[in-house]
């Protein structure tokens, strides 16, 4: 059994840990709020780009698929730079591993782009990766980052070195739940919205003026749409990370509290025991004097 002194030490050390986790939780909560605001503020922009896409793809400015591309998939893996966020990174790693295994089984090679340290460091040790690019997730996602990433992916795609691009990331549901997603973002799927468009709507779009012309706009828009999708994924991942860390730290704080309670009880019991023991000794001593 641990001595009273040891118990005291342990209690104070757990208390310290609890303070750290509490602080981390608060920081994550603040960051989460900001990340959510960013998601909300880019939503109208993304919505508008998607709408333009559906107008144009419904207008016969159709997809020019690169047919003679190599059967290689490009996977963009989005994880975090730091740990202490529960299952956040491990779910990314699992999904990426599954994806690679699936493609390899189908006879396709996989090239990878990594954003965020964690997944990269672990997967690098586990398997041989065909790495195209790696960068840290960074403290804050800006649109420029998405632009640069998409440029790298598009370059490969246009050169015909890869014939599809997917992204694996955590989608933000709410502060306590994140859902892992693997989305294919290139080649673009024929927009479902355009297909289900009514006759009246179609007529309106046919009467629309295009400046300079449909195919030029479509080409420019396609790239922007791609960037927006990557940007969205990065923002979702950012919010998810903070959400995951917040709930992980909340649990840790709670667990530390439980542990402190248990240890304090043990400490008090031991203290009481030692007092009782001392009393007994004193009483026994005085008794023996009396009889003598």
């Amino acid at each position: 059994m641990a001595s009273i002194k040891d118990l005291k030490k342990r209690i104070s050390s757990v208390k310290n840990t609890q303070q750290t986790t509490k602080a981390m939780k608060m920081v994550s909560a603040a960051k989460l709020r900001r990340a959510q605001e960013t998601i909300l503020s880019q939503r109208p922009y993304a919505g508008e780009i998607a709408k333009l896409m559906s107008i144009l793809s419904g207008q016969g400015a159709s997809e020019d698929t690169i047919t003679n591309a190599a059967p290689v998939s490009l996977l963009i893996v989005v994880s975090s730079d730091r740990g202490l966020c529960a299952g956040y990174n491990s779910s990314v790693i699992k999904a990426a591993t599954n994806y690679i295994a699936e493609k390899t089984a189908a006879g396709k090679a996989v090239k990878c782009i990594f954003v965020g340290k964690k997944a990269y460091e672990i997967l690098r040790g586990r398997m041989k990766l065909d790495l195209v690019h790696y960068e840290e997730f960074g403290p804050k996602i800006v649109f420029k980052k998405a632009t640069e990433l998409s440029k790298k992916a598009l370059e490969l795609y246009e050169k015909g070195e890869v014939n599809e691009v997917s992204i694996v990331f955590n989608e933000f549901q709410n502060a306590i739940s994140q859902v892992i997603r693997t989305d294919r973002i290139l080649p673009l799927e024929a927009s479902a919205a355009a297909a289900s468009e009514g006759e009246a709507q179609k007529l309106i779009h046919e009467l629309t003026l295009y400046e300079p012309d449909k195919s030029t706009i479509y080409a420019a828009l396609k790239n922007k749409y791609f960037v927006v999708q990557i940007f969205k994924a990065l923002l979702e991942a950012q919010a998810s990370e903070h959400g995951a860390r917040m709930s992980a730290m909340e649990n840790a704080t709670k667990n530390a509290g439980d542990m402190i309670k248990k240890l304090t009880l043990l400490y008090n019991k031991q203290r009481q025991a030692s007092i009782t023991k001392e009393l007994l000794e004193i009483i026994a001593g005085s008794e023996s004097q009396k009889t003598a």
């Binding site: 144009l56 629309t208 003026l209 295009y210 400046e211 030029t216 420019a220």
Partner: peptide, 8 residues
């Protein structure tokens, strides 16, 4: 009252 238009 402008006609529908999409432009870069």
């Amino acid at each position: 009252g402008h006609a529908n238009l999409v432009g870069i």
